[in-house]
Design a binder for these strands. Structure first.
Lengths: 390, 390
DNA sequence: GTTGATAATTCAAGTCATTTGAGTTAATGC
DNA sequence: GCATTAACTCAAATGACTTGAATTATCAAC
């Protein structure tokens, strides 16, 4: 989890850094832009933007895209983010395997890899991860000098005291500073986050949340996670554990249970197991769904019921532009849930002037969190830092 | 509702503004500080801080507080925020009355006033509010040249489409830009917010949230509101309606009802009315509580039950440092609820290393939101702006 | 008590990114 | 064609912060 940046003053150097990030972010967002347009957006002089663009172009982060004429006047030279200008490594550590993905600046997947893990202690994980970084650099040699950093997704909470009796699934990680360990082993800037947060940002870099600044993301992992993005930045909470929506109580006819006991991959696995069926992976679930399996259908009904509740809570607490549903589920099931959720009437999101659907499907599949890990890094590069007040 | 600031670049002028706010905020937070200490906190040179402090002192915003010796070396000259360096006007508009309060820089109440309102249309309200501003300036002439602005708390949502069939209680305010109207009438910088948000900031300026940066605030108004502060800044949501926790569904034995039907002032009034008792104001409630009224006791039990649920949701979604309970209720009842809420076990806030209670009582009483309105202005002065990403 | 170490503060000069203003280039539209 | 509009560049100016040397005042050790 990234620690909150302490309050900082501003000086020329930090202004420069901020402005470069802001320019990159604007161009990434718009796809292609001219100097004057950027200057207007950021309330900077065109000269300042010119200087920044010259820098970024020299660094290979931007490329010229010809001139574009819009009415009178000299047509503006357009700039776009160079996809190969930089790369980000995403690493997802699970108890039994490590996943890696290399993304370019446009969020496109350059390479992915999976390695089994027989031992999830820090030493073994760090060795594996280092080897995967090397493999990625071999596969894409141009990324060697242009690697922005690595994003790590691990089961949390870690590094801090968590809920009594819960904690990371990974042995030997409770008392260590994961960020520092990875930084030392990989010799890269590191972002550490949980799966839901990472996946939420992945949608923003190259997914359903492009162009959104304030949205919520439900992530189907083993449990149910929530990524909250406000003003383009992740909300971490005071101790880095915001978004544990799976824990909130759901009052059903059978009693009060945690939300994720009705709405998660573990929940569907358990439900199917009671019917004597296995549904341990995404492909199986997809087949069961295609076959309109009655047990799966029953689970979907109870999941949609739980989702109604979760949507009502998140909409009224955050007032997001939209809610995205994604994660380790087949796309068909995500689409089904989106289609079959009863959006609450009593919600601040129930507005007559909406332009955005209230609930949409995002990226799905096994790699979602791994791509998200890389997105943690890309987002940092495209979004000016926010300092803590006080 | 304050609109999100569009993304901005940084230059010397904006750096200066940012740094002045940051210095003021640090000093306000610590009470009293020396130049070198501030410089370390903000990662600025002592020279820069010296210049800023000289400016702020000239403007009357800071006062010297002697030297303080901490070990070797030249004792540092201490500075504190000058309480009379600036003032903020808080205005709360209700259907039947307008409340005003003048606060100094330390959040202390200089003056309060109440005026009945026979007509809540914009013209009448603006006339009343302008008269109250003049009265405040007469009561505290030194504030005339030192008024930072006015914060306005009104029933929302307004200025934008709200939930169908709901909207402001005030006639004639649906289609107008309240901020612009007040700015024109009062000739002051204006912050508009809802009661819960405003009260949440009041706790930060001079209350239970001093020193906190990330916390949640349950506000008892007519309904139930939630103020969310993250990193010292209010979360507004995409459309300014974040925090409508009163709307979320609560599943009780009697069926699903909005949370605020169990946990709000209207709810207690209704409950007592069913028993043939009136409990329309805070004093009455306080007396009933002191007399251990059995009907009130019953309501308190159901309210505490609802609060359990709300706490579980807010803790797991936001991971705040603490949750504060405040608003238009007698302090005795707030204290009772704090003492009788079953804090959920399954919560990220259930940590072994807590230094802060999970649920505490904040300011109570009729004026809470009015003071909060002024706090909106004070907080803006003490907290560097945050620009929207994209 | 003297003396040296430590630390806050100031002064004056230097640095750096942005702004300003004049001039150039290349479209549109009458 | 020719005036208008707008993007862009060059060179100089600006402004806030940083740097480095000098000053002041306390603590601690001899």
């Amino acid at each position: 989890m990234r620690h909150a940046v302490p309050q900082q003053g501003s000086n020329a150097e930090r202004s420069r850094h901020h402005n470069r990030q802001a320019v990159l972010g604007q161009i990434h967002h718009a796809g292609t832009m001219g100097r004057a347009e950027i200057a207007r957006m950021l309330s900077l002089s065109t000269q300042a933007v010119s200087n920044i663009i010259a820098d970024l172009t020299d660094d290979g982060m931007l490329i010229e895209k010809g001139r574009r004429s819009v009415g009178r006047g000299l047509p503006a030279v357009q700039y776009a983010v160079n996809p190969n200008g930089a790369f980000a490594l995403g690493i997802e550590v699970r108890p039994d395997a490590v996943f890696a993905a290399l993304l370019d600046m446009q969020g496109r997947v350059v390479m992915t890899e999976r390695k089994s893990l027989s031992d999830a202690h820090p030493d073994a994980v760090l060795r594996t991860v280092t080897a995967m970084r090397d493999a990625a650099m071999t596969a894409q040699p141009s990324a060697r000098k242009r690697l922005l950093g690595a994003g790590i997704v691990m089961p949390g909470p870690f590094g801090r005291t968590g809920i009594a009796g819960r904690g990371t699934d990974l042995p030997g990680w409770q008392q260590v500073d994961a960020r520092a360990l990875f930084a030392a082993a990989l010799e890269l800037p590191i972002e550490v986050g949980n799966d839901a947060n990472a996946a939420a940002l992945a949608e923003r870099i190259a997914g359903a949340a492009q162009g959104l600044t304030t949205y919520a993301y439900f992530y189907f992992g083993a449990g149910l996670g929530l990524g909250l993005v406000s003003g383009g930045r992740l909300l971490h909470g005071a101790f880095g554990n915001a978004g544990e929506i799976g824990h909130i109580p759901l009052r059903t006819a059978q009693g009060t249970v945690p939300l994720e006991s009705a709405l998660s991959r573990l929940s569907v696995q358990r439900h199917m197991a009671q019917a004597g069926k296995t549904a341990d992976d995404i492909e199986t679930l997809d087949h069961l769904y295609a076959a309109t399996d009655p047990d799966l259908t029953a689970w979907l009904a109870s999941a949609a019921f739980a989702l109604d509740h979760a949507v009502a809570i998140v909409e009224n607490l955050f007032d997001p532009q939209t809610i995205i549903l994604g994660g380790a589920m087949p796309a068909t099931i995500l689409d089904h849930l989106v289609a079959h959720t009863n959006l609450p009437t009593l919600s601040v999101a129930n507005r007559s002037d909406r332009t955005q659907a209230r609930l949409i499907a995002g990226a799905s599949g096994r790699m979602t969190a791994t791509l998200g890990a890389a997105a943690l890094v890309l987002n940092r590069t495209l979004t000016p830092e926010i300092a803590q007040a006080y």
